[in-house]
Nucleic acid binder design. Structure first.
Length: 192
DNA sequence: AGGAAGATCTACT
DNA sequence: GTAGATCTTCCTA
C-alpha cells in the first residue's frame, strides 16, 4: 500500500483531480479503518475561479489553499462538511474537492454514521461521504501524504476504467472548462 | 446582525 | 424527477 507523495499534488488542480480518480481514500479511526475508492472529484482554483473559496484573496480560513499541498482543506456549506485536498503548482492556489467515493472497508461503520441501510446512498455526495467517514473540521489541515495521518490517500491497484468530465455541480459561477471528473458507470458518482 | 455557501432530505407532481 | 425548506459556519457590515 503506497501513499501518494507530495509531488503528486504539486501539479495543475485539474490534472490532480483526474489522477485522483480510482485512488483509495483511507480514514484512520481510533478503533479501525474506513476506506473507499475515489470516483468523483472537482478542481478549484484561486482568484480566477469565482466558485473557489480562495476567490476573494487570502483569508484566515482559506489560507490552507495557498500553502502546502497534500493537506486537507475542510469547510462547511449548507450544513455539510466538504473534503478538499490542497493541490496546485508552486506559487499558485487550488484544491480538489472529493465529491464521491465507493465504500470499501468499514462499510458497517459508515452505514451507522449515515443512519441508512442503502449502500448506494452511503457516499455518493460530498456531504454524505464526510458524514460516513466521520470527517469534520477537526481534521482540517492534516497531511494526507503521511502514512500515519488520520486521512491518507494511497495508490490503487491498476484497475482500468473510463473517466468522464463535466462542468462542476452546484456552483453559481462556473468556469467555461469542465472541472469535474468521474469514473464512468460507477454507481456511486453523485448523479445530478 | 445578516446573508451566502462546492448540499441534502423530504414531499410532492 | 423536480421543488422547496432547512441544515451550520464564517465572512462582511
Amino acid at each position: 500500500m503506497k501513499v501518494l507523495a507530495r509531488d503528486f499534488y504539486d501539479r495543475e488542480p485539474a490534472t490532480v483531480a483526474k489522477d485522483l480518480l480510482g485512488k483509495i481514500l483511507v480514514r484512520r479511526l481510533g478503533n479501525g479503518i474506513l476506506s473507499g475508492r475515489i470516483v468523483e472529484t472537482e478542481a478549484y482554483y484561486g482568484k480566477d475561479d469565482p466558485a473557489s473559496r480562495a476567490y476573494k484573496g487570502r483569508k484566515p480560513f482559506n489560507e490552507l489553499m495557498f500553502m502546502n499541498t497534500g493537506k486537507t482543506f475542510i469547510y462547511m456549506v449548507h450544513a455539510n462538511w466538504l473534503l478538499n485536498i490542497v493541490a496546485h503548482k508552486q506559487g499558485q492556489v487550488g484544491g480538489i474537492l472529493i465529491r464521491a467515493i465507493e465504500p470499501l472497508k468499514g462499510t458497517e461503520t459508515m452505514l451507522k454514521n449515515r443512519k441508512t441501510k442503502d449502500m448506494k446512498d452511503l457516499t455518493n455526495g460530498p456531504g454524505k461521504l464526510t458524514k460516513a467517514l466521520a470527517v469534520t473540521k477537526d481534521l482540517n489541515g492534516i497531511d494526507v501524504t503521511k502514512r500515519d495521518s488520520e486521512i491518507v490517500i494511497v495508490e490503487a491497484k491498476g484497475e482500468d476504467f473510463e473517466t468522464g468530465s463535466s462542468h462542476r455541480i452546484g456552483v453559481k459561477h462556473d468556469l467555461p472548462q469542465p472541472l469535474r471528473f468521474y469514473i464512468k458507470q460507477n454507481k456511486f458518482v453523485s448523479k445530478s
